[in-house]
């Protein structure tokens, strides 16, 4: 029987959660016995090639590209996991949510104390994804099945959750592995 597939992505995140995936250390050898990676920055596969059992989402939705990728994951994955505080809450990028978008752009590109921008342009190339009015937690955009808290979630929490899901066991993390920081 073919191994189940998993996919991962980093939306508006810092890749810290992916570092925590790698932080399972030598168990990564057990993981590749259990699963094949599909779309993921870990193997650099850019698009989905198969239906996936589990999708791990790092980061919230800060722009239209994040929303497109997240909806793509929802279509291709049986189970979606919000991985870390940015996916769950919006995280550090969501600090802009109390400030109007135009003010953020003006501060970043026009008024900031270290800005050198004589043309006074705010980047608007069609290649650059449009920013959303605020940063959205993933579960406010698509249905999310599981949440792994932490900044980043502990490697043990990621490992135990993946193994439980891939072996049809309930996800029941001990107290020590549920942390919001």
């Amino acid at each position: 029987m073919a191994k189940p597939k998993i996919a991962t992505t980093s939306l508006a995140g810092c890749f810290g959660c992916h570092m925590s995936i790698l932080d399972i250390d030598e168990r990564i050898l057990e993981l590749v016995e259990l699963v094949d990676f599909d779309k993921s920055p870990i193997d650099d596969i850019k698009e989905f090639h198969h239906r996936c059992a589990v999708g791990l989402i790092e980061g919230g939705c800060a722009n239209e590209e994040n929303v497109r990728v997240l909806k793509d994951f929802r279509r291709h994955c049986d189970i979606l996991i919000s991985l870390g505080e940015c996916a769950i809450l919006g995280g550090i990028p969501a600090l802009r949510n109390t400030i109007p978008l135009q003010e953020c752009l003006d501060e970043a590109y026009l008024n900031g104390p270290s800005v050198y921008n004589p043309a006074k342009t705010i980047p608007n190339d069609p290649e650059i994804p449009l920013l959303l009015n605020k940063v959205y937690p993933c579960h406010e955009v698509v249905k999310i099945d599981y949440f792994l808290q932490g900044c980043p979630p502990r490697a043990d929490a990621i490992w135990e959750t993946l193994v439980a899901l891939l072996t049809d066991k309930p996800v029941d993390l001990p107290y020590d592995l549920i942390k919001y920081d």
Binding site: S82, G90, A94, T98, L148
Partner: peptide
């Protein structure tokens, strides 16, 4: 929240300006 095992709030975030 840890004691009650809350993994994510069920209500939408308000992001109030404080």
């Amino acid at each position: 929240a840890y004691r009650f095992g809350i993994m994510a709030p069920k209500f939408p975030y308000q992001f109030p300006a404080r």
